[in-house]
């Protein structure tokens, strides 16, 4: 009877319903991951600084993220007078929208991908480049001087590091000969020596550090340095404020996932032999993503904040030349056939 009811729907609405279901299957764990990433951050940084971290809510404080979310939901959303109300409330949505939409093309394993589109790498680049609108509009719509200055600052930073990130991705697509993330993952099949981490090591370093800068994380957190710098979200409160942080953490997970897929052999185990191959691909990808996220938290606990001119110098004068040189190196290696085998 259920199949009869299902067949009663026209074909296009069946597609829509299935896709909506799959979106929920992706977004719900992602949101849970975001919540527990904030918990992991507080705990890990706590232990790195020789303190315990949060330990009040639930067993071993596992309910702390839930408590935080409830608290933020119950807070009043204050809209400043003389601000543009529509844009003010649209900005957090624009910040989190691209951060979630990019997950549509992420392959979680050889077969698990919502939309296996041909130019998925470009799609991700295009969507992540849209995240900056949330920040600019937030700064402008609040009609307040400091958020506006903060928005200009972080927008300039994001635009600068996007270029280095884009160039790093050009190296990956040259090596794999494809813009499709699934094929990039498949090209790294085999052992740990087949991962793009080794031939593209400079690009990996540039990509990962640019990713940290792109998400406005420490040591590049001049956008929001919680304790002292006034950022673009000064006028936001409650859930509208939390949305920016949801977007930031979702972007962190996205950057970690992309780095794992493009440089760390995606869902392939490090050694293609028995005990390693027992763990399914999704598990390996999760391990790699967690490792990259751990590095991001480690950065925050370790490094002092960059000065703004140093951030700009690093992006424009160090990373972009490094990526350009390495793209030429890859081109040469592919052209001179003996070394072309490095890239399958």
């Amino acid at each position: 009877m259920l199949t009869n009811m299902w067949n009663w729907f026209p074909g296009w609405s069946q597609t829509v319903i299935i896709d909506l279901g799959l979106i929920i299957v992706i977004v719900l764990p992602l949101m849970l991951g975001v919540a527990y990433l904030t918990y992991a951050e507080r705990k890990i940084i706590g232990y790195m600084q020789m303190r315990i971290g949060p330990n009040r809510v639930g067993p071993r404080d596992w309910l702390q993220p839930i408590a935080d979310a409830l608290k933020l939901l119950l807070k009043e959303i204050i809209v400043p007078t003389n601000s543009n109300k529509f844009l003010f409330l649209l900005a957090p949505v624009l910040a989190i929208g691209p951060a979630l939409a990019a997950w549509a093309v992420i392959p979680f394993s050889d077969t698990l991908v919502l939309a296996n589109i041909d130019a998925s790498l470009l799609f991700i680049l295009a969507l992540t480049s849209m995240g900056v609108y949330g920040i600019i509009i937030a700064g402008w719509a609040a009609n307040s001087k400091y958020p506006f200055l903060g928005a200009m600052r972080s927008a300039a930073q994001m635009v600068a590091y996007e270029i280095a990130m884009g160039f790093a991705l050009v190296g990956v697509l040259m090596a794999a000969g494809s813009l499709n993330l699934r094929e990039i993952g498949l090209a790294q099949a085999g052992n740990i020596s087949d991962w793009y981490l080794w031939p593209l090591l400079p690009l990996f370093v540039v990509y990962f550090i640019s990713g940290v800068a792109e998400t406005n994380r420490a040591p590049f957190d001049v956008a929001e340095g919680e304790s002292e710098i006034v950022g673009f979200h000064l006028e936001y409160s409650g859930m509208s404020f939390a949305m920016f942080f949801l977007a930031e953490y979702a972007n962190m997970i996205l950057i970690a996932t992309l780095a794992s897929i493009m440089f760390l052999g995606a869902w392939h185990p490090p050694f293609d032999v028995a005990p390693f191959t027992w763990i399914p691909g999704l598990g390996w990808l999760a391990v790699k993503v967690c490792l990259m996220l751990f590095f991001m938290l480690w950065f925050r606990a370790t490094f002092p904040r960059y000065r703004y001119d140093q951030i700009m110098r690093l992006g424009w004068k160090v990373f972009i030349p490094v990526t350009l040189v390495w793209i030429v190196v890859i081109g040469g290696a592919i052209f001179l056939s003996p070394w072309g085998d490095v890239f399958h």
Binding site: A119, L122, F123, L125, A126, L127, S129, M130, E162
Partner: peptide, 11 residues
């Protein structure tokens, strides 16, 4: 389409 978004919208 993606390049339109990347170049015009994003930059």
């Amino acid at each position: 389409a993606i390049v339109l978004v990347l170049v015009y919208v994003g930059a």
